[in-house]
Design a protein around this nucleic acid. Structure first.
Length: 402
RNA sequence: GGGCAGAUACUCAAGUGGCCAACGAGGGCAGACUGUAAAUCUGCUGGCAUCGCCUUCAGAGGUUCGAAUCCUCUUCUGCCCA
């Protein structure tokens, strides 16, 4: 096992908050002295099963803990997901059944396994202890915290001031998450910076249960490919861990230039020195912005699909977007008849949502057949031979004769 | 329990009897340009259809030649008083 000083150096890299620092040091010292790994907690929300490179920022940090010999405890929030939404952002997130949350939890863990060492990972469901609590237990738990303390949370404050509704059960989420820490005897809990409040509640609750409080560690919330909102599936600005190499590469290339340092630092598994060199190169102009972005895109693809896939994705990108050629692979459609009206074809193959949209696309000159723009709204496609239909920059369809 | 205010398209937000498929902003999509699916500029953004028609402004009724706009009830939300 590494020395405490060395461990701290690794742990601190790229983090936003690490509180309280000296408590963690003590825990590490004890861990080394007694040869006992720390229990490192991460809670997962299984209401959305797909994880993206934003989640990966925290998962990478967990992996570092594992490489230092510590134990990761993944808590699948199946109980909390059954009840509904904690953030209040989406007002009517549907409550899931226990089975759905279990299923989502499984796929989540499968994806997390791309990053974590599963031999050093415990996976638990919080329904195990939360479902077992009686109403009396819940009241006893909620007596340990005050409304004023809960209202300190940023989004509660904002909503309260803004006259937006806050349901009582939303107050219970931080408490239930805190209780998770009690249940698994957490030494340190990780999360995004948006979780800071919830993580700190965990400390208070653990203390009131007579336990040594956990330390907390937060990682930055990675912005999505739009460069503004945080990365999330529902906003459609995410790069999924299971995205194809082509999509991963293309999405990476679509980030704003200003975001490149962030992505380089948090999505590319690089050292602090590399980050510094990268930023200096950009500022000094010795690194061309486009090459910098290609570098980032390649690293991200290589991280999840391997170097070969990264090189292929780059070559494909060059061909399709720089040379305006057509991609290697695209969806195919076998024509039902020899002649099909273009508008119907677009809708039927989901290249347009409605006929009106299909007509708009044609009018705007976005539709190409074998590289030639089609502007006739009533165009009938001759499907007696193989054709390539293109809509916009991204959507392709190979049409095969009947 | 009482009083007041509000509910508009993906989001925010105008619109208070006809000129409203509904201003504007964001988002999304597309075009031009480019170093890129970046930035910038421009267009489109309910559906069907080559005039035009159909379905929308929380829900259900009603008034009217005509309503997102007026009335009644219902549902939901916020604020104040208790």
């Amino acid at each position: 096992m590494m020395s405490v000083t060395e461990q701290l150096r690794v742990i601190e890299e790229h983090v936003v908050d690490l509180l309280p620092h000296d408590e963690l040091k003590k825990k590490l010292e004890r861990s080394v002295a007694t040869n006992t790994p720390l229990r490192v907690k991460l809670g997962l929300d299984p209401s959305r099963p797909d994880i993206h490179i934003g989640h990966a920022v925290v998962l990478n940090k967990l992996r570092q803990f594992q490489d230092l010999g510590h134990t990761v405890v993944l808590i699948i929030g199946d109980f909390t997901a059954m009840i509904g939404d904690p953030t209040g952002k989406s007002k009517t997130r549907p409550a899931l059944t226990l089975e759905e949350t279990r299923e989502n939890g499984r796929t989540y863990v499968d994806q997390a396994a791309k990053i974590l060492d599963m031999t050093r990972t415990e996976v638990v469901h919080n329904s195990k202890w939360l479902d077992a609590m009686s109403f009396k237990d819940v009241i006893a738990l909620s007596a340990k915290y005050t409304v004023a303390q809960l209202l300190e949370r940023d989004d509660f404050t904002k909503r309260y001031r803004g006259g937006e509704p806050i349901s009582v059960h939303e107050f219970l989420y931080p408490l239930s998450q805190a209780y998770d820490s009690v249940a698994i005897r957490s030494d340190i809990e990780l999360g995004g910076t948006d979780q800071k409040f919830n993580l700190l509640v965990g400390r208070e609750i653990m203390r009131s249960f007579g336990m040594e409080p956990q330390c907390i560690l937060t990682m930055p919330i990675l912005e999505g490919t739009d460069g503004v909102e945080k990365m999330s599936k529902s906003l459609g600005n995410y790069i999924g861990l299971t995205d194809s190499p082509r999509d991963m590469f293309g999405k990476s290339m679509s980030i704003p230039d200003t975001l490149m340092p962030r992505y380089f630092q948090y999505a590319c598994s690089v050292s602090a020195e590399e980050v510094r060199a990268f930023q200096e190169g950009l500022v000094a102009g010795t690194i061309h912005p486009r090459n910098a972005k290609v570098d980032i895109a390649k690293r991200i693809v290589a991280r999840y699909h391997g170097q070969q896939a990264a090189d292929d994705a780059f070559a494909e990108f060059e061909r399709v977007f720089v040379k305006k050629d057509i991609p290697d692979e695209m969806p195919t459609y076998t024509a039902a008849t020899a002649h099909e009206p273009l508008v119907d074809l677009l809708v039927q193959q989901q290249l347009a949502k409605s006929k009106t949209e299909a007509r708009t696309l044609i009018k705007q000159g976005s539709v190409q057949l074998d590289g030639t723009k089609v502007v006739d709204l009533d165009h009938v496609v001759d499907c007696s031979q193989e054709r390539v239909l293109r809509v916009g920059k991204l959507r392709f369809l190979r049409i095969l004769p009947a």
